[in-house]
Amino acid sequence: MAIIEVKKLSKNFKVKVKEKGLKNSLKAIIKPKYKIVRAVKNISFEVEKGEMIAFIGPNGAGKSTTIKMLTGILYPNNGSIKVLGIDPQKERKKLAYEIGTVFGQKEQLWTHLTPYDNFKFFGAIYDIPESRVEKKIEELKMLFELDDFINTPVRNLSLGQRIRCEIVASLIHEPKILFLDEPTIGLDPVVKENIRTLIKRMNKEYKTTVFLTSHDVSDIEKLCKRVIIINNGQVVLDDTMENLKYHYLNKKIVDAKMKERVNLDDEDGITILKDKGYNLKIEVDIQKRSVADALKLLNPDNIIDINISNVPLEDIISDIYKKEGKE
């Protein structure tokens, strides 16, 4: 059964149009001009219980607007939302007991308090009895490895430690769904990896449904089994990660080190990405030409070393953005 149901959801923003110059500014006071920005256009999707879903798109695509409508922060103009059978706009408080939110760009913790005091405060927000909060803090402290800094004021923690605490704070009330809006923003690769491992562990341990938005493709690749791509306020792809790779990985990158110089030009199915004489990097469209075919052109006897890889997922996704943007 779907625990998030979104049907024909739309959100418009009325934005004042400001023309340049003092004269136009004066004119705008008397007769202001507005334009309607359609941030989310008629989108529909469902999320199943226990899923880890990536909701991605370029800046301004409508990701945060959608997540804010799902959590009851914004009111939609059209369409319907049911999160755990609850309408977020009509029963915001009831829903708040069931969901957790982490906005990577907005801190919810009091910086002068320790994580421990913050967690107790969050426990009080969700009306959880003291003894249960203590037990939960102990449990999450182990899971998220907070032992070393749980009694250090939040302002003295590193960004990675803070994000871990933000996630724990959002889990104190045992939410059924966790909304993560760019949780790894600004973190270094090692810390990012650590956060991903912890999110994965949490999903496994508590069966929490995770709704994740991120610009980092590795977050999506390593955490999620399903991906929804949104661009210009519309869902442009809703598929499993496996299908995404299968359908869009129709290109291979061949990186070869040659004994002798090879003169190769772009031809049907082959694109030269880099040609430094003895080092050659080509892209092979396997729908038009096989890799073996491409290797024949290089002459296998002439190859010293070779590496054949898939196109990075990052490139696939930006290709989808561009393609759908044009359409």
Binding site: K94, K106, I125
Partner: peptide
């Protein structure tokens, strides 16, 4: 500045 967000996701 959008600071109401953090209060809107709380059951209070």
């Amino acid at each position: 500045t959008g600071k109401l967000d953090s209060y809107l996701v709380q059951p209070k």
